[in-house]
């Protein structure tokens, strides 16, 4: 009994201290939040302030001509590349995640996970160069939509696979057990219960991956090339334009028109990202209206 410490009955002293700690932690938390938010607000603000005063809708409706014209070809190019990455990387990444979370065991799983992590760590410019050697040169695809979107897909598959795997693993086992006990086929459990519950995580992974591919420049320089012509839906042998190229190249030009186009391109990229995030929120809220916890 003598080892049990006596409880301090003076409640006022620790309470004061608790309040003090509470205030310090709250302040630090708020500061961290501000530090996190301020760069995004600042960047968006700066881009908008520079782009909006001179913005004209002809930027969206005309192709680029030399250092002037519009960004129509770049908008279509970025949209095509991103949509392609969504299909290619989305399919392979989600299937990999499903395989890793549900079926893979032992060494195969370890090998696949390791390979995926290594791939995620390779700098994008290196992946771009590999894409150039393999697709543009070796397969004779030339600078093209195909080379660009496949190289970007290889880059973002690990993100999608990882988030898919993690969110599938987090599905409560009580759901799957309940379905097994009712005599559901494994594929039915996966389709109706597991994937549906994991959808918020999978969609988030997809959005991060697409956001990365919308914003990448280096791998595309090597693979998609650049063109001010409107992309025609050729998979190979036809370079395409994209917005990040316009941001970088036009900003470094001495003419005001070119620099304005650069800000317009940056603004359009930001809008694309916001649209991606908004659509993911809509998908998640639509599919999760019967979920235990709202996504």
């Amino acid at each position: 009994m003598s080892n049990i410490p006596t409880i301090d009955t003076n409640l006022f002293v620790p309470r004061k201290r608790r309040r003090y700690i509470n205030r310090v932690v709250f302040t630090l938390g708020t500061l961290a939040l501000l530090l996190l938010i301020s760069p995004s607000v600042w960047i968006i603000g700066q881009v908008l302030v520079r782009a909006i005063p001179h913005f004209s809708f002809s930027v969206i409706t005309t192709n680029g001509v030399g250092l002037g014209g519009g960004l129509k070809n770049d908008i279509v190019g970025t949209t095509l590349i991103t949509a392609g990455v969504g299909v290619v990387a989305g399919t392979i990444g989600i299937l990999t995640g499903i395989y890793l979370s549900q079926f893979a065991t032992g060494q195969v799983a370890g090998l696949l996970r390791g390979a995926s992590e290594v791939l995620a760590g390779i700098p994008s410019i290196v992946i771009g160069y590999v894409g150039y050697i393999a697709l543009v040169v070796h397969f004779h695809w030339g600078f093209s939509l195909g080379a660009g979107l496949i190289t970007l897909s290889v880059m973002v598959i690990p993100y999608i696979a990882k988030t898919t795997e993690v969110s599938l693993r987090q599905v409560p086992s009580s759901y799957t057990e309940g379905a097994e006990a009712l005599g559901f086929k494994p594929t039915r459990i996966l389709r109706l219960i597991t994937i549906k519950s994991a959808l918020p995580g999978i969609v988030t992974g997809m959005i991060v991956a697409l956001a990365i591919s919308v914003g990448e420049t280096a791998p595309l320089l090597y693979t998609a090339g650049y063109s001010q012509n409107m992309p025609h839906l050729a998979f190979t042998h036809s370079p395409v334009g994209y917005l990040t190229y316009a941001v970088w190249t036009f900003y470094n030009q001495p003419t005001v028109t070119a620099q304005r186009l650069s800000y317009d391109a940056a603004m359009l990229l930001i809008f694309m990202l916001l649209a991606l995030i908004a659509s993911s929120r809509i998908i998640v809220s639509r599919t999760q209206r019967h979920a235990e916890t709202k996504g």
Partner: peptide
């Protein structure tokens, strides 16, 4: 699957599907 259709199960914690 047929066995489990004939032999149902109820768990300790209610587990409705989402």
């Amino acid at each position: 699957l047929e066995l489990r259709r004939n032999v149902g199960m109820l768990f300790q914690r209610a587990n409705p599907f989402p």
